[in-house]
Design a protein around this nucleic acid. Structure first.
Lengths: 185, 185
DNA sequence: GAGCACATGTAATTTGTTACATGATTCC
DNA sequence: GGAATCATGTAACAAATTACATGTGCTC
């Protein structure tokens, strides 16, 4: 089907394939869906999505058709069989790079010893407030909006992912509150 | 003291300043200490540490002196008063960029709906096993090894950071086990 | 008609990793 | 004597973000 050298699929590839499978059709829609669901553990940008779609099309993992609305151009992409197979193979594969985390907040926490006790407590309180903030702002993945492609399939993992994120934040909040109490004595 | 334009301090700057304060003296020692303590939430490399030390020295936040061992050259760095002040100011500052996370594992989880139930369960089990692995391999920050510079100061935050990491992993393990049980019914 | 969401891309810049280059010291 | 660790740096490369560039359609 293609004479291209074998394509190397990266997480962004699977993000795109996965969102297509859930029913997002345009690059813009994929990015929007990602912002509302996967952004907190796999951030991306349009400058990644568009080139990736083109790359996947060159390798016949997706097909593109014109889908203009009046004068505004738009592309509608679909998974090919090879594309769906690649997605499933990845989901089944055990290979897993460890999660990468960059938390300035934890870095501060780690060095907090340099502060007098009052400032340590202030730091903990600020951290806890911020965690509470993030908890209330977790996007509930707007699954119905993008699952038009799925007939009858019960979609629960996106919601579970959001649930997990909220639980983690709640756990962190409690952990910080306890430490605050202990340190404040 | 310097005619350089004002220095812009980034997290790697504070990592270096903080490790110096804990008693690491050479660039190599800073990297080693970071690998054993902060690497899981703020990874870095020697190719960042060395240039950063040079930059901090140019701006008089650290001082460098020769500390060769025989024929092997080595530099010993120390915080200046300005350096310690910068570290403390950062620790007190509320500014906080949200943590950045990239977890291929969670991305898989999010899309796991595409799999038949058995494969979903296998995915959950693999995730849980991997979390358990990471939990057992968490480095305990080797604080005594680098705290020669601190006289009498009780250093507990590095240990607390490791405790928190272990707690989070344990929480995740339980969460996954429960989901597995629920899904397995 | 103003402002925002929809829509697609490329270019420039930033950030960070891995590879390269070189050598000394220590431990088995 | 060989391997691992100590020690310092630079160069090449990779990945990702932000900025740039352009225009349409919808809603208040």
């Amino acid at each position: 089907m293609t004479s291209e050298p074998p394509i190397k699929l990266k997480p962004i590839s699977y993000l795109v394939l996965g969102m297509l499978r859930l029913g997002a059709k345009s690059g813009y829609a994929i990015k929007k869906a990602a912002d509302a669901s996967t952004a907190s553990f796999w951030p991306t940008s349009l400058a990644q999505v568009y080139p990736e779609l083109a790359r996947l099309e060159r390798h016949s993992l997706v097909t593109r058709r014109d889908d203009r609305r009046g004068a505004r151009e738009r592309s509608a992409y679909e998974l090919t069989e090879a594309g769906e197979a690649a997605l499933l193979a990845w989901l089944r594969s055990p290979v897993d790079t460890p999660p990468q985390i960059r938390s300035e907040s934890l870095l501060r926490f780690f060095f907090a010893n340099a502060l007098p006790k009052d400032d340590q407590l202030a730091l903990l309180r600020r951290m806890r407030e911020r965690v509470a903030d993030r908890k209330t702002h977790i996007y509930n993945p707007d699954v119905p909006a993008v699952t038009t492609a799925l007939k009858g399939e019960e979609v629960r993992f996106p919601q579970l992912t959001a649930d997990y994120a909220v639980s983690l934040l709640a756990f962190t909040e409690r952990w910080l509150a306890e430490l605050e109490a202990e340190l404040g004595e």
